[in-house]
Amino acid sequence: MSERQASEYQPLRPQPGPIGEMFAPVAGFGVTLSSMFKPTVTEQYPREKVPTQRRFHGRHQLNRYADGLEKCIGCELCAWACPADAIYVEGASNAALPQNAGLDVNADDSHGAHMSPGERYGSVYQINYLRCIFCGLCIEACPTRALTMTNDFELAGKTRAGMIYEKQDLLAPLSEGMLAAPHPMVEGTTDTDYYSGDVLGPTAAQVDWVREQRPDDPTLDAAEAVVSGKAPAPTQRQHELRPDEGPGAAEKSAGAAAVGSVRSDAGVDPAETIDASGAHTGAHLTGGSRGTEVNA
């Protein structure tokens, strides 16, 4: 029975003729030969970086408002949302900043030194990149859009301690025209005005305050140019891929993310003021642009 079935088997595929049978053993080389004439798919990664998708989840960034104040209010919601317990945040009161020592500043005042608008700011902010799984739940949890993600993915490091990024490593660099924190909020505003995108740049009062407190602050000149209308209002900057720094360049001495340790030299060149109209002092409260953030 089974023998007869086997002899009656007819293949459904067309079978090669006698010439095809002869070349069958070397037919596989045809694949190799034909692929020689196809375009190369290899990406020359370290030399030519193919950009990621725009929403790629890369390293984090702590954003700033247009006047240079930090958006992070130290609420720890990102740390609570983190499934890998990679984030550590400590909040502190703006009124307790050392610049406010001896002054009568209440927590909800807009005058006095501020790191972020409102009552509190994140005094310690650490992300352990050896725990972080780049899921983005922290970004979803952030109520002020302070925490976003960049497309930077070159993160390898030699030590475990070096892979914990402190606040100064995560903060967005100050753009041209932003005034380095701490300084007072824009006069007459509340934190709600900041959240709704009504603050478009530093004001004269803020520049005067910083000039009095820190006369040699490198961001003063650019901020003054914005106030006087010589330069356009600052826009958000983000960390870029670090093509020149090799792997492990993120290694740094572990410095405490204390109040004064915010990087003020982050690529701000005071001499590089752009001569353009717009962004007058009165324009700070005109509403409109909600700021551009990565991975919005």
Partner: peptide, 12 residues
């Protein structure tokens, strides 16, 4: 050398 990511992309 430590490499973060979950999982890290081949470029990483």
């Amino acid at each position: 050398i430590y490499l973060p990511g979950c999982p890290p992309r081949p470029e990483m």
